[in-house]
Design a binder for these strands. Structure first.
Lengths: 228, 228
DNA sequence: TAACTTATAGTAATTTAGACTACAAGTTAT
DNA sequence: ATAACTTGTAGTCTAAATTACTATAAGTTA
């Protein structure tokens, strides 16, 4: 079976990679070292190859620019305005990723001169329609974290309840009440408390928790619905 | 500016059109009268032209197969598995539409021999991966109607509270309590009650309501969040 | 040891959700 | 005309969830 070469150069992938750092939410941008967009910031992206699925292409593009372990990666939207890209028509499939910055070493790919985390409220002007894509994607994330337990992907495997709360505060851009937040999350039974505690903190150490996907899947079958 | 011809025949649109009829939720399918899929059911779809945006393409494809008025039409997902389509690689952008069947006259397009509403629980075997696409799209709708007031698009402009309740029951596939449902919806202040009442019914006539988008937008700005 | 920081437990008022009852306002059959 | 029937609409009661707090515990640092 001959696959269409035509897809190449007409369909791209762009990734909005979210990371949580210093109690604030960041997005990963690259600076192009080559071509017509040299020196400009942009979302990490690339071309879809004709023998790989979209999900695989997104994963390949992401791993070519960073050293990642397990990442949450999901399709968000396709942007297909006729003139969104110069010279020729390019339709782009946007994916977003949630990563734990601790496990996440950066290395610039071949055509990239810089890879930097930007606070979501301080993203620079980017190429093409990338600012618009980012904005919509961030709004999507804000909506999504309230209805599905995906926020955990931004934290280390084991985390404290305050870290989790600060994560939600950073994403939703509003303060939450500490005792109430704790109670709510604990009552959901999604968090498994380990016997371990925080280390090297200059105050009382908090208990560490991890998110239990299996319990979540079981609850979902029973009709449970996650809501923050 | 020369646009890439290459996009044609590599990128398609498929539409999942939902309609509400006789208290049950239906989806619009076409039977192909031509080509390799002759005689098979499929989601209405077509090719994206190189001078139209995705949204416009979806709208054109939909209106070429039906006589529509205002429709709710939104992108859902892109399906890009390498072998999802025979002979060559085709990536398809799936849109879903919510229509009011009353305003919706069907007319089969040029390569289509039949256009029929199927109950969402009785969809036949379809071409390619269309059954998978439909299934995912229906699940998406079930989730979405609970968090955003889009269900109204499936009803006439003016509707009774029972119609609205039956709509939600059909989509969510569960029974709802009548008095509680009424109270909840009315308290949201999204519904404007008209002075009009139902006509030609063989029982007490119910008050007619309409959904007020302006009020909704105003509430959203204040942080209101729609939940069923 | 006092001051400080964060963790964690508890309380009380208010709001919402859920199950259920009751009755009103029409239509249809007798 | 009236009874039976169907759907609309209002209300009640209980349990649960949300919200806004207060209080105290367990550590660290000066």
């Amino acid at each position: 079976m001959k696959l269409s070469d035509e897809i190449i150069d007409a369909l791209s992938i762009d990734c909005v990679v979210f990371g949580f750092k210093d109690s604030s939410l960041s997005v990963l941008l690259v600076k192009h070292g080559d071509g017509i967009t040299k020196g400009k910031w942009a979302l990490p992206g690339g071309w879809i190859q004709y023998n790989e699925s979209l999900d695989k292409a997104a994963y390949r593009i992401l791993t070519s620019q960073t050293a990642v372990q397990n990442i949450y990666l999901e399709q968000f939207h396709v942007f297909g305005e006729v003139n969104r890209f110069p010279v020729k028509r390019v339709i782009t499939v946007c994916y977003y990723a949630l990563v734990n910055i601790e496990n996440f070493a950066l290395h610039a790919g071949p055509t990239v001169s810089d890879v930097v985390w930007f606070n979501v409220n301080k993203v620079p002007k980017m190429s093409f329609d990338h600012n618009k894509i980012f904005k919509q994607c961030f709004a999507h994330l804000q909506h999504k974290v309230q209805h599905e337990p995906i926020g955990f992907n931004l934290l280390p495997k084991k985390f404290t309840l305050l870290q989790l709360q600060e994560l939600y505060e950073a994403i939703l851009e509003k303060k939450l009440d500490k005792p109430n937040f704790r109670r709510k999350l604990i009552k959901m039974n999604l968090l498994v408390s380990s016997t371990e505690k925080q280390k090297d903190v200059s105050h009382r150490a908090a208990k560490l928790f991890r998110f239990d996907k299996k319990v979540y899947d079981r609850l979902i079958e029973k009709g449970f619905s996650f809501e923050i």
